[in-house]
């Protein structure tokens, strides 16, 4: 039996849960079709999570491409189809990439498999993103450095903890709905072992009856605990938290059946969710809003 999973018209970290809810009853060996025909927009999280989803399936899924080629040309510019064609059986039109002048895609979908990839990602973001981060997000040099560091540390989590490769994408866009200003979004997704298993492998599971994906996320993201006993470990996520705190940004991390978020005043997300549909690995999203002079 083949299940059809319908993608929402706007695919982001929150609406991606609808995809996972539809997917939950269907085991990995079952064939699924992802119907994106009526999907008109996808965030970096949405695109990288779609590639991650395909990696969790034993049977290669089918992907029905967006019908509106004007909209899906963005998916091409974002580099999605370059990797999707290996992971999905694509059906439908894949438009050619068209130059649109200055692109708001700061880093197209990029695989992260080893440390060298992190170096490449950091070098590319510094070359490609400086103009937009300066002119649209008004980030001063130190904040731009912090942005690159947050990106670097997020990607390193894949290399050091996931046990398999993952994906990264960065985009700037005008976040009308919640912020009314520009924001840059970093999305890093993998289908690896996830936070809970990583901490268990490092003998870092605390003695408690309430051990869960949510507890593991809280231990790692809030308390900065790493699977490594080295006292210098765990500073990457701690550093990201400090950076987003100073910039009024948002951090959301999903792993297994839980999601945790450091929520700024401009957002009304829930700090922690448990009992979500299981999704292997770890999926991280960082949102840095335009600097309007109120953050240090």
């Amino acid at each position: 039996m083949t299940a059809v999973i319908t993608l929402p018209s706007s695919l982001n970290d929150l609406t991606f849960e609808q995809v996972l809810e539809q997917l939950a009853p269907h085991p990995p060996e079952e064939k699924v079709i992802l119907d994106a025909r009526h999907c008109t927009w996808a965030s970096p999280y949405g695109l990288t999570a779609l590639l991650t989803l395909a990696q969790t399936r034993q049977e290669k899924p089918t992907f029905l491409t967006p019908e509106d080629t004007d909209k899906s040309s963005y998916w091409v510019r974002a580099g999605f189809f370059k990797y999707a064609e290996e992971l999905y059986d694509l059906q439908g039109n894949v438009p050619r990439a068209r130059s649109s002048g200055e692109s708001d895609v700061l880093l197209e979908v990029t695989p992260v498999n080893r440390s060298q990839d992190v170096h490449d990602v950091v070098e590319r973001i510094q070359k490609q993103a400086e103009v937009i981060l300066t002119n649209k997000l008004h980030l001063e040099p130190r904040a731009m450095m912090g942005f690159s560091m947050a990106l670097s540390e997020s990607c390193q989590n894949i290399v050091e903890h996931a046990g398999r490769g993952g994906w990264v994408m960065v985009q700037a866009y005008h976040y009308r709905k919640r912020l009314g200003r520009w924001a840059a979004e970093i999305a890093v997704c993998d289908a690896g072992i996830g936070f809970r298993k990583s901490l268990e492998n490092g003998q870092r599971r605390p003695v408690t009856d309430r051990w869960s994906d949510g507890a593991a996320l809280e231990l790692a993201v809030v308390n900065g605990v790493s699977r490594y006993s080295d006292p210098g470990r765990g500073q990457g996520i701690k550093g990201i938290r400090g950076y987003i705190g100073r910039r009024g940004g948002k951090l959301a991390v999903r792993s297994g059946t839980a999601r945790i978020a450091i929520v700024p005043a401009w957002d009304d997300d829930v700090p922690r969710r448990d009992n979500l549909p299981n999704f292997p690995g770890a999926q991280l999203q960082i949102t840095i809003p335009e600097n309007v002079g109120k953050t240090a």
């Binding site: 690159s148 210098g232 500073q235």
Partner: peptide, 15 residues
């Protein structure tokens, strides 16, 4: 040196 991230600062400077 261009930029330095937290992990590298820990490895190079702190250690």
């Amino acid at each position: 040196i261009g930029m330095m991230d937290y992990s590298c600062a820990d490895e190079v400077v702190a250690k």
